[in-house]
Nucleic acid binder design. Structure first.
Lengths: 214, 214, 214, 214
DNA sequence: CATGAATGAGACTTCATTCAT
DNA sequence: TATGAATGAAGTCTCATTCAT
């Protein structure tokens, strides 16, 4: 009796993956539910057997991924590493997500986090959880003296995430595929720019050395 | 004989301003053309007398504003000021734009620059002109030795603009109106974070002094 | 398993038949798609489930009928009958089409073949196929000596079809229904006028006798 | 004081001629009133100073021309010529009308006489006046014994006019301009086909001779 | 006479969702 | 589970006509 439920779970997954590709290719608003069904190779109505609406499909794709990212941020924060190293781990995770799942990340960024008026609004609280975790890392870095206090943690989080999102958006709409070297370079530039902007004067040299250990 | 043309221009302006308010309030996709006509106090068809489509109204609002911003960036670049001061002038211009015309800026950011799949794509080239101008400032700062060369000008522009856009987005969707103090604080934090991230070690102290004169 | 597809085909037919009645009653441009849906007793959107546009419905009605007519012409031509008999068979087929399906023929004639600027243009090539087949009959009659050569086959076809179309148009817009006697009379008059005009002098008497056998 | 009224009359004429060209080029339903104004080089509203509606412009173009044609038919009928010569004169007049004013005739035929559902209906009575005059010629030819009585005058009129209209329609939608030889040939073919179809057996030879005198 | 801004009703088409089988 | 036919609300755009100047 487990087989059918597994099969069912598979179909659901098939639809989700198809939706991801269709959303990435055509955009959420431009595609029709039938496009998703066609891509998944299932009948029209079956989509509504697994999801209550077209919105719910995107909600699901977003939440699955975003929760993974929140976990990754929490994990990075849980380590004993320096703030700069934590932030580098986070930036690295997001950039690698794009590397390995560019279609999914395109959907997440284009259709949710940047879609301020629609899904970005729906998931506002969830999205801000990421900012808050990042802000927390900054706040604690300020408390322990490694980051200076002129910059509020809230702003720091916005600048950090905003820089990354902007880079992803650029990649998403560029013709050329991004090569690995550029991906690694961006990870470094993010911390080299934002973290250095956040760190105390005295801290400027050592972290540069620390970064090389990554 | 000037009156009619003035009157005509006025009606066009009335419609544009009404559209700005309606787009800001309801969102471009959620509002109907009749909402714009109602807000403007004109007949439905008059909207189509001045604009060929609903899209063209938003295009017009965006281009009007974006061209002003490009001019402001070019103007900031034309001065003899330091790179940091130039970037501060640009950040200041954008932040002040939001201060004085929050509805317009909400429309620009939410419906165009962040709407990657729709108008953001249409105006991709125009939007990138801003990045390129900012990147040019950075590149020249690297050439004259004030900015270090580890960070590419392209990335620097994305990080700079991305940070600002993220802050605006936060303000746009926050309940509370932003007070002047916060606005000024953000201007400072932007340069304090991004510019410091971009500047050479030796340059870290002097700019801090320069910034205090703003 | 045949039932659903039959049911589906039926609904499509129901819509086509309803459209035929509505087009005949109100005219293609004057009726709304909702009039068709109402007449068919189906929901608005179902019309668009089966047809991609209002135009396509008329295209379908026309092509269905016109292909039947082209087949009838080809069939008439395939027999061993005299040219006059072939043309009488064709005229008879068209006149009988009006007798048995006056609404459909009204739509075909009024909305397509006579609508030179709209559907008549779209289906120009298809319409001309009929002229060409008729012209072919005339050309072969000239070759075998039964028709004289002063009249080009092209003109003969236009005159033949033009005469019939004009008669149909007259009937279509007359108040009174056409009785069978008039229908039969017209069939005879068409061949008696046009064919006699086309035939050689020597041929004038025999065909008159032949016609009486119809 | 005559000058302004002359000027006024001129403007009215300018608009009518412009409308003729625009209707011929774009079709009545496809063009906008502003297209006519543009073509005439006058302001939008002026069209409504001279005509109460777009329809009235076409009505005017049609009636002007159709009345000329009715007069020509009456004139042809008034002579002492044979029925065949009268019909040849009428066919010749219509064909020459197309020769000298193809745009106007295109509008008359395509937008009025063939537009059964719209203007053809409005002007039904006027159009039928032509048929009736032609029918009258045929009826009198039957009374004097030159035309046989198997064909009703009503049908004869429809066949005669229908043949001509079909030829004009063909020319109108053919790419190639019609040369004079073809025009003359068609005049002959019309009477050679239709009149011969209408004439008594005994009359077949003499008219052929008569026709050569044209 | 002349202008062209202003009016507003009207219709096609799309597509998410439901439901009978 | 699975299918896809059926539903119907919603919104953009067109354009003939009017009218103030």
């Amino acid at each position: 009796m487990a087989a059918p439920s597994t099969a069912a779970a598979d179909k659901r997954r098939v639809i989700l993956d198809a939706a991801m590709r269709v959303f990435a290719r055509q955009g959420f608003h431009t595609c029709r539910v039938s496009d998703i069904a066609d891509e998944a190779g299932v009948a029209y109505g079956l989509v509504y057997h697994y999801f209550s609406s077209k919105d719910e499909i995107l909600d699901t794709l977003f939440l699955e991924r975003w929760n993974v990212m929140l976990a990754a941020i929490a994990e990075a924060d849980r380590t004993q590493r320096s703030p700069r190293e934590k932030l580098r781990a986070i930036a690295g995770f997001i950039v690698d997500s794009y590397r390995y799942e560019p279609e999914l990340m395109k959907v997440i960024v284009v259709e949710v986090t940047r879609a301020a008026n629609t899904f970005g609004r729906t998931h506002l609280a969830k999205i801000r959880e990421a900012y808050e975790q990042i802000g927390g890392i900054v706040a604690r870095a300020q408390a322990d003296g490694s980051f200076r206090e002129e910059i509020t943690p809230e702003f720091a989080a916005l600048a950090f995430y905003g820089s990354i999102e902007q880079v992803l958006t650029r990649w998403i709409f560029d013709r050329d595929p991004v090569d690995d070297e550029e991906l690694q370079g961006v990870k470094t530039m993010i911390v080299e720019t934002i973290c250095r902007g956040l760190e105390r004067d005295a801290a400027l040299s050592p972290p540069a050395a620390a970064a090389s250990s990554d």
